[in-house]
């Protein structure tokens, strides 16, 4: 093939690729970046002072506080349960493993609203576990416990789905080598398994944190969205929007979006840096 023909075919390749990439890029631009820019515009439209005022409101501050508490508990719970379930799914062989694996994905497939209703069925008035907790004097519904429970349920697949493939690729040889060198199961997990799955785990945790911060449907149903009590940041946005306090809604929305984006960029950066160093 002549040089000219070669370069012509290469430029045709490039054109074809551009035709494929352009719509995708346009889609991202219109549906993701556009609205985000809109949120930024509306949040800052009335000046930076407005933002200060918004954060000065006690119900806004409480909403952020509640979201942070739920996120922290969710992150701790999903990383522990997530790793345990991932270890079982990746390592053990048992009857019904496929079914368990499918159930793990269920929260991703089921609408959060339905998850909320399931929680009501279990813990709400006349629910299966309601008499027990009422007798103990523990308030589950319309309180933090139910909000945390549904959020964990919805966020847990992210950790499991990130960790299982890493464990499967890792195999068991390194762990077995550690055993032959005298390491206990706990030492092996802490010193061999955990360092090997750390990037998958961190990524899963970041996704689960982002998901828990953004959760609305399930939390709305189980919390009752009581202003200043069980109102998370997302529930605050819903109410502010309803009550024509759009500026406050945009400011809180921008804060949540910024948090999630920073979280993911942070993880990506750490991952890349570690990849460059080789480990």
């Amino acid at each position: 093939m002549s040089v000219v023909a070669q370069s012509r075919s290469r430029s045709r390749d490039r054109l074809g690729r551009a035709c494929l990439v352009a719509p995708a890029l346009l889609y991202v631009l219109v549906l993701l970046v556009g609205p985000l820019a809109g949120i930024v515009y509306y949040a800052f439209k009335s000046g930076v002072g407005e933002i200060g005022t918004a954060f000065g409101q006690s119900d806004v501050r409480h909403a952020f506080y509640l979201t942070a508490v739920i996120m922290l508990i969710t992150v701790v719970a999903t990383s522990i349960f997530g790793v345990v379930v991932a270890l079982v799914l990746a390592r053990d062989r048992f009857v019904g493993k496929r079914i368990v694996s499918a159930i793990v994905d269920l929260p991703l497939a089921v609408s959060p609203v339905i998850v909320g209703l399931m929680a009501v069925l279990l813990f709400g008035r006349g629910g299966w576990f309601e008499p027990f907790f009422t007798a103990q004097g523990i308030q589950i519904m319309f309180a933090l416990p139910s909000m945390v429970l549904v959020t964990i349920f919805i966020a847990i697949p992210f950790v499991i789905r990130e960790v299982v493939p890493v464990l499967e690729e890792l195999g068991m040889e390194e762990e077995q080598a550690a055993w032959t060198l005298g390491a206990s199961k706990l030492q092996t997990f802490v010193r061999i398994t955990l360092p090997n799955i750390r990037w998958g785990l961190l990524y899963g945790i970041a996704l689960s944190a982002a998901r828990s911060v953004g959760e609305v449907g399930a939390v709305l149903i189980v919390s009752g969205a009581l202003q200043g009590q069980t109102e998370t940041a997302t529930l605050y946005i819903l109410r502010a929007f309803d009550q024509y306090q759009e500026r406050q809604a945009y400011i809180v929305a921008l804060t949540l979006a910024a948090f999630s984006i920073v979280l993911l960029i942070g993880i990506e950066t750490l991952k890349r840096r570690s990849a460059r160093r080789g480990h």
């Binding site: 040889e173 390194e174 077995q176 080598a177 550690a178 055993w179 032959t180 005298g182 390491a183 206990s184 061999i192 360092p195 090997n196 480990h279």
Partner: peptide, 20 residues
């Protein structure tokens, strides 16, 4: 006896070195 208690040296075919 458990693997740990046996205190035997074992060399794996694919080395099984700790990558990190």
């Amino acid at each position: 006896a458990s693997v740990q208690e046996r205190r035997l040296g074992f060399v794996f075919q694919h080395y099984a070195l700790f990558k990190h």
